[in-house]
Amino acid sequence: MTPDPGPPGRGLTPSERPTVPLTKEPGPSGHAGPEPDTMAQERGKGRRTHRPWSARRLPAALVAAVILVAAVAALADVVAVRAGRPSAAWRRHLTDALATRPVDDLWMVTGAAAAGAAGLWLIALALTPGLRHWLPLRSTADCPRLLASLNRDGAAGLLRDAALRVPGVGAARVRVRRHRVKARADVRFRDPRQVKDDLTAVLGEERDRLALAAPPRIVVRVRRRTG
């Protein structure tokens, strides 16, 4: 299952490049062999070129904190009851509700739907790579163990500056998504069609300078605005 899934030939060449040149593996490769988690992850799960996988620290911390609070609260109350004190109000409310409301009660159905949705969300978090704001960069042949990414806002800023260098462009807005770059520009002078061609060329050049592993498509829209 690992090596063959690659119907879109788009991302494959760069992902295979680092494995091919074993140029810089001098003698001391003894302990460097069985190591890399990220590389293994890239090979195993990441059929999208060099996408780094998030560690999911924040969701994990939130879920752990919720479980911790619930468990400690329940524990404290159970122990208090065992020690002869009356149980807390929240626990009596909760057990009453759970013991009297049938499962087709509105509250129960709403709660169950919310729990199911949260469950789906957590499963999605567990299975997807995340880090959607980071665009993976092509790895350089010299540093095969380098995994680099550029954030989308940064890419958008560089592309916008490139767009503003085209003569005739008064203002430009660039939105970078993972597979498409949308640029909208106001044309102050010159023929809009010519400006659009120039913009496409300049943005394509700038995109190549970004060295993205999966270069996004560029869509340019121009609007004439004088005044």
């Binding site: 560690a55 999911r56 620290r57 969701p59 994990a60 879920v63 479980i67 499962v103 087709d104 009660d105 129960m108 159905v109 709660g111 169950a112 739907a113 919310a114 729990a115 199911g116 949705a117 949260a118 469950g119 789906l120 969300w121 957590l122 499963i123 999605a124 978090l125 567990a126 299975l127």
Partner: peptide, 25 residues
């Protein structure tokens, strides 16, 4: 993290579905 998140997600989803199945008969 991903394993435990998936586990928590499965528990929540399973519990929710159990109630919803019975609730809507």
């Amino acid at each position: 993290n991903r394993t435990l998140l998936a586990l928590a997600g499965l528990v929540l989803l399973g519990g929710g579905l159990l109630i919803l199945f019975a609730g809507f008969d």
